[in-house]
Design a protein around this nucleic acid. Structure first.
Lengths: 200, 200
DNA sequence: TCTTGGTTTGACCAAGTGGTCAAAACAACG
DNA sequence: CGTTGTTTTGACCACTTGGTCAAACCAAGA
């Protein structure tokens, strides 16, 4: 059994994780320093290392929490629901995550860009199984004639790509759109794209 | 006038840039070290610094070359061509770049993820103008009824997202697809997606 | 009050970092 | 061969980095 945490522990660990997310999501694991995280969290470096044993511990704590949130929406896809609406709901949920938790998206992107050294196993294990299962469901919809012919795997990839792009490439998107909010247009666009892709 | 380069300079600078691409594309600017680049290029660190004055000089040299290659395909879009075929050709070209030059794509992704500190000006300047121009062309096609109603900006974003995803998230895509080559399915999928989006 | 256990910090360390420099090694040409 | 300009390197430096540690601080209960 794990020992109960004091309120101070609870608060400081949360503070550190938030600060770590700020820093790691921007610079990646190697490009970030403990001092940056300490600075961002308002704690001294030794104090920070009192709550987490190492830089890596902060990073992996963030990543494992992230993976839970990340896989959850795909699990929520209901095989018995209306195919197009289910996939649309999934895409919208992913887009909302890009809008409201862009740092999580960028943290993930950084990890993948660097070759997924910390989560390669999860990708080849849990994630792969989950996408395999989802693909079976989608293929079922295709075979039943409920949606047009489409490769299930690449469909999933495309939803990821389209939605995460607005978080990961936020700077670029805003540089081009200027003052305009990207996410309004994005939601309509993605809905249109998916509907035209899947319905006759 | 710039002084002519010797053959050795030519060769070593090219070697260094290739090595720099390997390293920077994986770890980003801050996460990479001169020693890594030196190691990867087979040169000693002082020797490397004989050809480039600093780590940043290598990085910016790579970035500026990259930006040229990056913007070029969009410029090649022909307003007088067939709309769907033009956009398909653009997407395919971008996908081919993801396939054959994934490191360039990841270098760019890293730079953007970190907030584009070195190329923010280019994004807000040259890139924005280019996309503005392209959007006018696409909107013209829409108004002329040559393609279905679609937001030109988000259409461009979606082509970027779909194609670059296969380079930037290569590890993840391959973790899910296993031995299967991602790019075969990707090309068909993207073509289908764009056709269904744009044609009745 | 004193004690106890969690909390915070200044000082420190070894390794890694970007970068310099003088000297050595080399290439090319008269 | 000797000279001259280019290339390469070992040694070095100041600073940063991840991490340690003993000591100080503090909160709460006996």
């Amino acid at each position: 059994m794990t020992k109960p945490k004091t309120r101070i522990q609870e608060r400081n660990q949360a503070t550190i994780l938030r600060a770590g997310l700020d820093v790691f999501s921007q610079y990646g694991f190697r490009g970030s320093t403990i001092d940056q995280v300490a600075e961002a969290s308002g704690l001294s470096k030794p104090n920070l290392l009192y709550y987490f044993p190492s830089k890596e511990a902060i990073y992996t704590a963030l990543l494992s929490q992230l993976l839970v949130d990340w896989l959850e929406p795909l699990k929520a896809l209901d095989p018995k629901g209306d195919p197009v609406e289910e996939l649309l709901a999934y895409a919208k949920r992913k887009l909302a995550m890009s809008q409201h938790f862009p740092q999580e998206s960028r943290l993930f992107a950084n990890e993948i860009l660097q070759g997924a050294p910390h989560i390669g196993d999860v990708l080849r294990g849990e994630l792969r199984e989950l996408v395999d299962d989802t693909s079976v469901v989608i293929q079922g919809w295709v075979d039943a004639g409920k949606v047009k012919q489409v490769d299930p795997y690449h469909l999933v990839f495309s939803i990821w790509a389209l939605t995460q792009h607005y978080a990961d490439f936020d700077v670029q998107v805003r540089a081009i759109l200027g003052d305009q909010d990207p996410f309004e247009g994005a939601e309509d666009y993605i809905e249109t794209m998916i509907r035209r892709l899947l319905t006759a």
